[in-house]
Nucleic acid binder design. Structure first.
Lengths: 247, 247
DNA sequence: CCATTCGCTTGACGCACGTCAAGCTGCCTG
DNA sequence: CAGGCAGCTTGACGTGCGTCAAGCGAATGG
């Protein structure tokens, strides 16, 4: 995305990071291809170097004033919203190279909560500055539209998953999606360490923790996965893909 | 929205409509408050006067090239996506003054299908022109961000509904939301004619048609609603609100 | 005009997943 | 090292909603 500035490998070493977007190993994921070097430099200037955040730390909370969007540089991030009566819904997981925070532009106030699943670092960009720069750099404006549209598409797909698929289909869809995102970062799409707990997965997918656990166990027994706690190896992508359409 | 041009009352009389955004009875819903008259005129110029569309007509289909976004002027519109294996998911209903079509900016190709639930008319705006004009009119750019963010917020709420609520909670949430949207248009928030079938409601909410029907009947028996086919009267808003949080 | 279809309702039944409960492992702390 | 807790797994059981089926009223069409 627009906002990644530094190789993920040295992102957590200290609070403030000097590297530029141009140096960042994630730039192909999060930088608009169309943006030329001159414009990347202008972008660099408005990015606020953010501190590393630790597991359980909130980037922002529902009700706080909307100010910035964030690109994940390293680690992983969870977004969730809380209903009037305290019911929580995990609305997404964000991995390095992905951008979050597009909720709440409309109300000037964040509608969801954002918390680190592990020690992570992010690039923060004040949205007001993005808007200014977007007026001058059309490819940046287009890129923001692009990112928001991607979020909408992803949310719509999630609605289908929640509305139409059974437990097996939801878990399979979730794993296939994660696998693709790992692949995009040039990590193995087969062997993954899940950054989130069973509880988070269940909450996200509208299932109880027990059903998540049982489904993982079943997929393991059927030799589609190897599961050892948060370590997951996909042994049969074809079968998993089939299952992701079940029910 | 940005694109509404004409009073809903005379929107369906013939194919092309002359009125401007300024004349439109819906402009307070869909025009950015901040946009001044001069800019509204510039906006008017890029809006393509769209023909009325009839029940079952598609505005666009999944796979077609992304070109425009649309504001509903009169009638009502349904969006839905179709999975690889033909499973359909209704992803939203759009009423006069609401804007749709933000899917597919990212892939240049529409990801969902859009169909009229009744005779309707829309304002079509070529997105490329919006992007151009947005570079010059910052309030317009902000407004597009605003609209897309609203869509993301709505989708996230929908995920919570699908993931956490039982049949009664989903139906109640759905009705409360519709009621608010009717109210915003200065229609009665109590007496509504639903533009969509039980089938559409069920598909949208992840329920079967039978469960939708049974739930309506139960709410009727409990004197929370009057239901007669698509005519719904909300008799007890407080109870309906409570129920919208159930499970 | 009858026949057909469509949209909806209602009932009987079964199953997938939630609930409740027990236990296991690994980690933290004193 | 013991004790406690958090995260996860597994089993037994119950239930909300899906499935199947029948029927009804209104719209459509030959």
């Amino acid at each position: 995305m627009v906002f990644v500035q530094t190789p993920a490998t040295n992102a957590c070493t200290h609070g403030f990071i000097k590297a530029t977007c141009n140096d960042c190993s994630l730039k192909n994921l999060c930088l608009p291809i169309a943006l030329d070097i001159k414009d990347i430099d202008r972008l660099d200037k408005i990015i606020q170097r953010s501190r590393a955040i630790h597991i359980g730390d909130h980037l922002y909370r529902s009700g706080e004033q909307f100010k910035s969007i964030y690109a994940v540089r390293s680690g992983s991030i969870k977004t969730y919203l809380v209903d009037d009566d305290g019911v929580e819904q995990v609305t997404g997981f964000f991995l390095p190279g992905e951008v979050l925070g597009f909720d709440g532009i409309s109300s000037e106030t964040h509608g969801c909560n954002v918390v680190a699943l592990e020690t992570s670092s992010v690039c923060e960009i004040p949205f007001a500055r993005i808007e200014e720069l977007s007026l001058q750099v059309s490819s940046l404006q287009h890129h923001i539209f692009h990112l928001m549209s991607q979020q909408i598409d992803a949310d719509n797909k999630m609605m289908l998953t929640l509305s139409k698929k059974n437990a097996e289909g939801r878990i399979a869809t979730f794993l296939v999606g994660l696998s693709q995102r790992f692949g995009r970062r040039n990590l193995s799409p087969n062997a993954m360490r899940l950054p989130m707990s069973r509880m988070d997965i269940g909450n996200y997918l509208g299932l109880t923790i027990e059903t998540v656990s049982r489904t993982f166990s079943r997929l393991h027994k059927e030799n589609i996965l190897n599961v050892d706690g948060r370590e997951v190896v996909i042994k049969d992508h074809a079968r998993l893909n089939e299952l992701s359409h079940s029910h």
